[in-house]
């Protein structure tokens, strides 16, 4: 899964999907930051995860109140 450089137009689309009002003058800055983050996250793509389940903190047991 190759990560490609993110454009500020794509950032605008992603921000809309997140319901985040991202002013025009911030999109380039966020795009640059996202590039760095995507590069770091790309290291996870090579891991064969099989059926490994994530650990969530949720516990169904009711605690005393």
């Amino acid at each position: 899964m190759n990560r490609i450089p993110v454009t500020k137009e794509e950032i605008e689309t992603l921000a809309k999907a997140a319901r985040l009002d991202l002013p025009e003058n911030r999109r380039q800055l966020v795009a640059k930051t996202m590039d760095g983050i995507y590069q770091i996250l790309a290291s996870l793509d090579s891991v064969e995860l099989g059926d490994t389940a994530p650990a969530f903190a949720y516990r169904a047991k009711w605690e005393g109140r």
Binding site: L14, A15, A18, L20, R26, L29, V30, T33, M34, L41
Partner: peptide
Amino acid sequence: RVFLEAGELI
């Protein structure tokens, strides 16, 4: 701020 904005897009 920019970290928080970026984190919204992961």
